[in-house]
């Protein structure tokens, strides 16, 4: 007799499974979870770590002193800082000054350690996500804009 009860139970469980898929099939329009990507942008939260950027203010000034803390903190060597020693016209002393803040996006794991390490909050993570490019060399970026200066409020 268990032969027939097996058949009965089998069919019952199969129908219960169909109940779930059937429910979603007939409510298909309401519960769509996919996003029509290029037209419809997904919602990105403000903390999302997309890439490292260096914010500049309206006078083309940034806060990076070239202290190399981020370079040391980076586990992958994706930050490279080229600096110069220039004579400060006011004091007459030679000081370290940033020349280029080079960021190799292709090596970055977006671990946020450089941002944690930065003493002046000069670099931040930006919630960008459309990062693909056609040429690998485009992923190497110079974060300080040409002609930009260090913000005078920032101390060494």
């Amino acid at each position: 007799m268990s032969y027939f009860s097996d058949i009965y139970n089998g069919i019952k469980t199969l129908l219960r499974g169909m109940q779930v898929t059937g429910k979603y099939f007939f409510n298909a329009r309401k519960e769509i979870i996919t996003v029509q990507y290029p037209e419809e942008k997904p919602h990105v939260f403000e903390r999302f770590r997309g890439e490292v950027v260096m914010p500049h203010d309206e006078n083309n000034m940034h806060k990076c002193t070239g202290c190399q803390s981020c370079e040391i903190a980076c586990p992958n060597g994706s930050i490279e800082i080229i600096w110069d020693r220039v004579v400060n016209p006011e004091t007459g002393k030679k000081v370290k000054q940033i020349d280029k803040h080079i960021y190799h996006f292709s090596m970055c794991t977006l671990c946020n350690l450089c941002i944690e390490a930065c003493p002046t909050n000069a670099i931040v993570m930006a919630p960008t996500y459309e990062s693909s490019v056609y040429d690998r060399s485009q992923l190497t970026k110079v974060l300080n804009k040409p002609g930009s200066k260090v913000h005078p409020d920032v101390k060494e």
């Binding site: 990105v44 939260f45 903390r47 999302f48 770590r49 977006l110 671990c111 946020n112 993570m125």
Partner: peptide, 17 residues
């Protein structure tokens, strides 16, 4: 989504130090 909002990443969160 919860992870992204709090930790800043969806999979490789690196939220602990």
């Amino acid at each position: 989504d919860i992870f992204e909002e709090t930790c800043g990443a969806r999979l490789t969160m690196n939220y602990n130090i």
